[in-house]
Design a protein around this nucleic acid. Sequence first.
DNA 1: CAAAATTAATCAAACGTTTGCGTTGTTTTC
DNA 2: GAAAACAACGCAAACGTTTGATTAATTTTG
Lengths: 338, 338
Amino acid sequence: MQSKPTTIKEIARILNISPSSVSRGLHDHPSIGAVTREKIKQLAKSLNYEPNKAAILFQKGKTYTIGVILPELSEHFFSIAISAIEDEAIKKNYTVIFAQSHDRYELEVKLVEKMKNQRVDGLLVSISKDTSNFDHFEKLNSFNIPIVFFDRIPPFKNVHYVACSLETATVKAVNYLLRKGHRSIGMINGPNTLYASAERKDGYKQAITFNRLKFDPSLIVNCDLTEQGTIDAVEKFLNHKRKPTAIVAFNDYVALFLIKYLKKLNVVHNFDIVSYANLPIISYLDHSPIASVEQYPYLQGQKAINILLDLIHSPNVKHQAYYNTIVDADLIINDVSA
Amino acid sequence: MQSKPTTIKEIARILNISPSSVSRGLHDHPSIGAVTREKIKQLAKSLNYEPNKAAILFQKGKTYTIGVILPELSEHFFSIAISAIEDEAIKKNYTVIFAQSHDRYELEVKLVEKMKNQRVDGLLVSISKDTSNFDHFEKLNSFNIPIVFFDRIPPFKNVHYVACSLETATVKAVNYLLRKGHRSIGMINGPNTLYASAERKDGYKQAITFNRLKFDPSLIVNCDLTEQGTIDAVEKFLNHKRKPTAIVAFNDYVALFLIKYLKKLNVVHNFDIVSYANLPIISYLDHSPIASVEQYPYLQGQKAINILLDLIHSPNVKHQAYYNTIVDADLIINDVSA
DNA sequence: CAAAATTAATCAAACGTTTGCGTTGTTTTC
DNA sequence: GAAAACAACGCAAACGTTTGATTAATTTTG
């Protein structure tokens, strides 16, 4: 025996009124009398009425669904960010669908297309690390689907985004190392396609020059964020004429690769390491980074979806202004000896 | 300018045929001639026609959506499992919505209700660790919404589920420790509400008695899987008259807590540790578990959703038989000295 | 060659909800 | 006391797609 869910029609039939009145009654429309309204609501409750979402979606042409595209769910940052997105969405009665680009541009393009076909009301995106072309996002404009980028954002301002000021954070990080006496600081940076890479570089430069030191570009090396890429980067430092005594790693995963390799070479104690992400797991390492930049994924996710919902609900005016939201990043000190 | 998406009606109007013919043409219905069919398909393609999913859902009374409820997305196991679910869903043109119970029973109940109201076609569930009442799942039966449990499953057989044989895995783990010469092996088990706890216990007992050793129940202690709970558990071992030389931890997170605490007490080298989950991060620890049980989350997720899709597509017969799928778990040896 | 079968398409209803407009009565206003 | 205002509800269309029933034209069959 499968029970058919209750419909508005059935309530109308039982109460001998029209379906439209039931609909209006349930929505507190002023043209329905208080008595009728209460009768409707009571019966609806007792019959366990739940609006058929599919019918509403169809009728309104909205899906109350927002899409999320991010590189890797198993990265701690994103798993937390999406938790925030989900929490907020549930509150506002939106449904979230998500997909992973696995950091591949072509997959990202396909997913954006998929999301469009799913008729999402809006999109939250953290771009893949080899995305340098953004046409697939621009297409959505003509369909009036707003996009908010978060964390991994495109390198221009005329989009909505939420991100950390990694530049400021990097200044803090480098300053911290300088205060600890380091004079040659290496940086393992990400690919140049990432805006975050530029920010880290700028922050590094800024801190160095502000402290009246000479900026040496060869102390910043790019890396594809894989384990092998990290090893290649480290090698450059080890062979450097001004061998660094401290290293700023692109994120905690890179830091892990880095530490593993340095341990293998038995030189891990020659380096102070600072990283980004502040993974909880990091504190369990023996030789962990002495500091890590916390990027507040939950907060970022929260802000991003709230901006998106705002865009969805705002009238169809072309936004001249873009939301460019910066979340403060903090340097978390793990160094017990500090 | 916002383009309205192309509809069947419009294609029909342009081609001077009826909407129903267009629909049938697109679905290769035999009653549409080959010429007309091709004309329809070509025009549809050139107009970038995409079926309005909302309309189809509404019409068919199906949502092509499956719900996933799991305890914590930031747990590596689940983030991998849901990746598998998502991958399979995309292939079959299903949409996945998910929610986290954060290991709380009341939240889980609400989420199940939410999913029901969203009219999901089916549900994939990994139950929270303090769920001992299963009425909220039984309600879904009358709505004909199939459920497949995975990993964290209820303690009875008359449901569909996919899980590891943790019993077998535990036998392997304990045998491994016994072969390494350990004669007093502690186990930090989970709450008794979890079926997985019973399995671990049984496996432990089985390995011990099979090796003609005496089973000492006080060497198995329950734990709520928090850091403090783990510390409390360890304390019992440290004060035990037959102080264990090896410990089987409930999972890698517990192992982390455990190792951290033992390090603090400077006794970490007195113990061999075996754990479950095989977190990638574990290998970066200095003193990591010498072995870990791999539960193949991707495979479990894959099997679970395929079973669910099977149930969804199968005719409305009451299944007398239940899918009780066991995925083999393997003991992965990390011990370099082994 | 009439009857039956086949082919190719159309018609109309249906899914559940929302909403602009119209229709009743009843009450207020000057 | 007639006109205007209002309160409370019903009617019907609309959203896009699918599908059972129907029709019309063509072909096959005995």
